[in-house]
Design a protein around this nucleic acid. Structure first.
Length: 691
DNA sequence: TCTCCATGAGTTTTT
DNA sequence: CTCATGGAGA
């Protein structure tokens, strides 16, 4: 147990704590994951059965990493630990027991993603003869999700509840579960099926939870039901980093756990990430929150470090220049670009920073956007796989029946659906006898023949990747992409190749028959969305919302657009709880920084095409940062204003006559005369400028 | 079935 | 402003 000696006192206390309820309040950068994995290793070495340890996380990545680290510490016995995300755990339980619930689900159900869910809501609205204009899908889906995760009666009109019920009915008819169902039905199973609850709460001797501050009420209920018998529940979290309330996480769980379980509290506040000026600033900010289950002040051994820079720009445009200039300077100091992050409150704010980075030729990547498995071609290929394995999955059949084009339009599908419903058949089974005109009918029969051809070929296949290759080949999907000269086609084909290699790599991962392997792989993919996005391989500046970099760290962080109405957002200025959450978002952003932290704002900004004057964010005030208004006086910069003396590499010395946005008009001695030059021009330097 | 235009809405999103 | 959506028309 040498590894115990690598722990500090606080971590040691947590890892070796007596078996029983413990809340480890682990601040940013205090070795949270280390502590959790070593706790698991410690339990195993104390003789506890790995197979009776359940550890839940929120991301696949965290689950995977934790498992690797446990195996590294204790050897192969660590493989037996139940290490899952909440959703993957639910999926395990439901694959075993879902038929016990009174909804007609079979263990072969599929899990749908956000986009599919919206599709089904849309269908539900149509089926109820309601006008989709009156029911914005996005917010309705959000409310349905909130209803499922928070048990809040959130429906505004009776019709909305009808849509919800229709949605739920359709999911059941089609043997589909959305993400929330994975949690909800697991809870229902444990709650209503006494013997199952008894079994699992006895079976799991230890329960560990990562990122506990992000649990919602249903998840808490599951943890409570599972943990109440042995009371060996070890949770790790940082209430100050709870920033997902809008997604259902319930801040109150933090206090509730301590009370319900009478848990011991262990605080980790020794930080290994940042220098102290950064930590002091973050501490000052978060101290403005009244509702904190555990007060802690992060400290580190890394010395005071650099001052935090707060820059208040006159225009949004100037703010981007401040950021760009500092990035260039950091780069010349030896900071790799991928160690620099520009963080903002919402995605719409990325644009002007992107533009500025493009102009300067600084490479960047934006976090967010479509993940690999959300791409159309990937979803199509996977839909084919599902249909070929089990053709009665009508939802997936509809997705691919006319892709590539087979002359099966909406009208034909509607008629087929109607007929299938009357006969009580799946769409696939209804194809043979559906009364349709010659051409459409012929097309449907041909589609069916294609599916059968794929099935026959797959019956002979031995490996996972063959399955996908057969599908892509016989369906004509790749041919379709090759044929159309859309510029994205090549990318799509490459993505499909990548998917084939995912199948190939997965071969040794799973056990059982080919069919069983595919099912497991599809499950994994259904819950997998991030695809190692945090591995920023290229040397590029990271642009991201604060939310998306939770858990990551960068040597330099720019928190931009620190303005009232934006950060904090205008949605939260009324509610004290939401304001505290907003402050936590800011805290999370600041604590990403290892060595340099910059915060910036602008006095005016273009928002939705209109010029807005925003006040500086209260978070700047609360952090007690000294403001820097003029870059010229205080930092390296090429910002120019009237009267400045400059040096140009060709024209020589000159005087600035005027500045219009980024264009400076400068008077040079004859024969050059008046020139208009981009103030960021590399050949242009302000005189007397000093690093 | 595709393309074009008018219209409206516009936080944060681990699964 | 910019993007998504949906209806009209080719």
């Amino acid at each position: 147990m040498d590894y115990l000696q690598t722990l500090n006192q606080q971590q040691f206390n947590a890892v070796t704590h007596d078996v029983g309820p413990v809340f480890v309040v682990a601040g940013a950068g205090t070795g949270k994951t280390r502590t959790l994995t070593m706790r698991i290793a410690y339990l195993i070495e104390q003789g506890h059965d790995p197979e009776r340890i359940l550890a839940v996380t929120f991301t696949n990545k965290a689950a995977r990493e934790m498992k690797e680290r446990v195996v590294n510490l204790v050897g192969p016995s660590g493989i037996g630990v139940w290490m899952y995300t909440f959703h993957a755990f639910g999926l395990q339980i439901l694959r075993r027991h879902i038929s016990v619930l009174p909804y007609g689900y079979r263990p072969t159900f599929s899990v749908i993603d956000e986009e599919d869910g919206k599709k089904i809501i849309k269908e539900s609205i149509k089926a109820l003869n309601l006008d989709s204009k009156d029911y914005p899908i996005k917010s309705l889906k959000g409310r349905i999700s909130r209803y499922k995760t928070q048990r809040i009666e959130a429906f505004e009109f009776n019709e909305e509840e009808m849509i919800f019920l229709e949605y739920q009915r359709r999911l059941r008819d089609e043997q589909l579960l959305d993400f929330d169902d994975l949690i909800l039905y697991t809870q229902e199973l444990l709650k209503t099926k006494h013997e199952l609850r008894e079994y699992y709460q006895t079976y799991f001797e230890h329960i560990l939870v990562d990122e506990f501050q992000d649990t919602d009420v249903i998840q808490y209920d599951i943890l409570q039901m599972l943990g109440i018998k042995h009371k060996a529940v070890f949770v790790v979290g940082d209430p100050d980093q709870s920033i997902y309330a809008f997604r259902g996480s319930f801040y109150g769980n933090n206090m509730k756990f301590i009370k319900d379980f009478n848990a011991d509290k262990v605080v980790l506040d020794q930080n290994y990430r940042s220098t102290n000026k950064i930590l002091d600033a973050a501490n000052r900010l978060i101290n403005h929150n009244k509702n904190r289950p555990a007060v802690k002040n992060l400290v580190s051994d890394l010395g005071p470090g650099h001052e935090i820079t707060y820059f208040n720009a006159p225009t949004d445009y100037r703010e981007t220049f401040f950021v760009i200039n500092e990035i260039s300077r950091l780069q010349s100091e030896g900071y790799p670009l991928h160690e620099i992050a520009v963080l903002y409150r919402n995605n719409a704010l990325s644009r002007i920073f992107e533009d500025a980075l493009i102009k300067q030729g600084i490479p960047y990547i934006i976090y967010g956007g479509l993940s690999f498995y959300e791409r159309k071609e990937i979803k199509d290929a996977l839909a084919y796989a599902r249909v070929v394995l089990d053709p009665i999955q009508s939802f997936y059949l509809k997705r691919i029946v006319n892709t590539p084009r087979r002359g099966i339009g909406n009208i034909s599908i509607q008629k087929l659906e109607e007929y299938a419903r009357k006969q009580g058949l799946s769409l696939y089974d209804a194809i043979d006898d559906v009364p349709l005109s010659g051409k459409s009918k012929q097309a449907l029969l041909e589609f069916k023949a294609t599916v059968i051809a794929m099935q026959e070929k797959i019956d002979e296949a031995k490996h996972l990747d063959e399955v996908l290759s057969i599908i892509l080949d016989i369906s004509g999907y790749v041919d379709m992409l090759k044929d159309d000269q859309d510029e994205t086609s090549d990318d799509r084909i490459l993505n499909l190749r990548e998917l084939v290699s995912v199948f190939k790599r997965s071969e040794t991962f799973y056990e059982g028959s080919l069919y069983q392997k595919i099912t497991q792989l599809l499950d994994q993919i259904a819950l997998y969305t991030d695809l190692d996005k945090s591995q920023n391989q290229e040397d590029a500046v990271v642009l991201s919302t604060v939310h998306q970099v939770k858990g990551l760290e960068f040597r330099a962080v720019f928190m931009v657009v620190m303005e009232e109405m934006i950060f904090p957002s205008d949605f939260s200025t009324m509610m004290p709880n939401e304001m505290e959450e907003e402050r936590r978002v800011c805290y999370v952003g600041m604590t990403r920084a290892k060595r340099r932290l910059y915060m910036s704002s602008s006095r005016q900004r273009m928002v939705y095409g209109q010029m807005k004057m925003n006040f500086t964010s209260r978070f700047i005030r609360e952090t007690k940062l000294t403001r820097i208004d003029t870059v010229e006086e205080n930092m390296s910069s090429s910002y120019l204003s009237k009267g400045d003396k400059v040096v140009h590499n060709i024209f020589g010395e000159g005087v600035v006559v005027s500045v219009d946005e980024d264009i400076a008009t400068i008077a040079f001695p004859m024969p050059h005369g008046i020139k208009k030059i981009l103030e960021s021009h590399p050949g242009l330097k302000k005189k007397g400028y000093n690093n």
